[in-house]
């Protein structure tokens, strides 16, 4: 089984009825020259990479940009049509006065399975005091948080909010909260490794293609930025397969990862086992 834990469903045609809203998504997320895609196109793309399921990420930018780059109801709508293919995440703007009500609705009513936050885009530090109730709410519902970490291509995203070290005290203070710092927190791969070997509740994902080809980029992360055995020796249970579609195509990330030597149990964990544990917690 292969689970892609990082997809932005900006162009899923079932939620593209409103052209103005689609334009807002494109300009706010920073992705252009693509258009609405039907489910048959999306599934063909998934099948090209042998992707069985994909986690869909919204982003609530109500106070910082005046809207959402896909909202929680739209995520729930997509999942309701194809629950066998999609895992729905929620988002919330931490600056909203009704942030906890938004999360109660997302987790309690919509049954979304995790929370997506982007500190640079949403303008907060992970240790800001107003984040505590949000962390508590995720623990209450046993939901993980997927944070953007490291470089972001989205416009108006100061990277200072996304340095991996900025998340360390969240892991210390909330050992029961599973958090993923996406994109290997690139370019801070060593810092990301440091956090994973210290904190078993910290995860990262493989959607790292900021330079070079997929093969070159993934080989660099897994064999140069990290020692070639670090992943399977020290934190093979903490990395999630992820593509970051529509910026990067999943089958190309998968093709590159297939070429990285690793033991079978580590590959199985990378491709699906870790995603399941991240979503549900230890059995």
């Amino acid at each position: 089984m292969l689970i892609d834990m990082h997809i932005h469903p900006i162009f899923y045609d079932i939620i593209c009825e409103n052209e103005k809203e689609l334009g807002f998504r494109k300009d706010t997320f920073g992705v252009w020259k693509q258009g609405p895609m039907r489910f048959d196109e999306l599934f063909a793309e998934m099948e090209a990479g042998s992707v069985d399921k994909a986690a869909l990420l919204p982003l609530d930018l109500t106070t910082t940009a005046g809207g959402w780059v896909v909202n929680n109801d739209q995520i729930a709508k997509i999942v309701s049509v194809h629950p066998e293919r999609f895992i729905g995440f929620a988002s919330v703007d931490p600056h909203r006065e009704d942030a906890l009500e938004v999360l109660d609705y997302a987790f309690g009513t919509l049954k979304l399975e995790g929370l997506k936050l982007h500190p640079a885009k949403q303008k907060f530090y992970p240790t800001d005091a107003f984040m505590e109730p949000i962390y508590q709410k995720c623990i209450e519902y046993n939901k993980p948080i997927l944070f953007h970490a490291g470089l972001s291509w989205e416009p108006n995203t100061p990277t200072k909010y996304c340095h991996p070290v900025a998340f360390e005290e969240v892991a210390i203070n909330h050992p029961d909260l599973r958090i993923c710092l996406a994109h290997f927190a690139w370019p801070w791969v060593r810092e990301m490794v440091m956090l994973m070997i210290k904190y078993p509740n910290i995860y990262t994902d493989t959607s790292v293609l900021y330079l070079d080809s997929p093969e070159e980029s993934i080989a660099r992360v897994f064999t140069v930025d990290m020692g070639p055995l670090w992943f399977e020796r020290s934190f093979y249970k903490q990395v999630l397969f992820a593509s970051n579609g529509p910026r990067f195509r999943a089958f190309k990330i998968k093709r590159a990862l297939d070429k990285i030597p690793m033991r079978d149990y580590a590959r199985e964990a990378l491709y699906s086992g870790n995603a399941i544990r991240f979503l549900k917690g230890e059995a």
């Binding site: 494109k26 997320f29 920073g30 992705v31 252009w32 020259k33 693509q34 291509w153 293609l209 900021y210 330079l211 070079d212 080809s213 997929p214 093969e215 070159e216 529509p246 910026r247 990067f248 195509r249 190309k252």
Partner: peptide, 20 residues
């Protein structure tokens, strides 16, 4: 060949996506 030092293997700001 798939693996060669193509110049197009980089992020394209006008797309917000990688070439590759």
């Amino acid at each position: 060949p798939l693996e060669a030092p193509y110049a197009h293997a980089h992020f394209l700001p006008s797309y917000g996506a990688t070439g590759n």
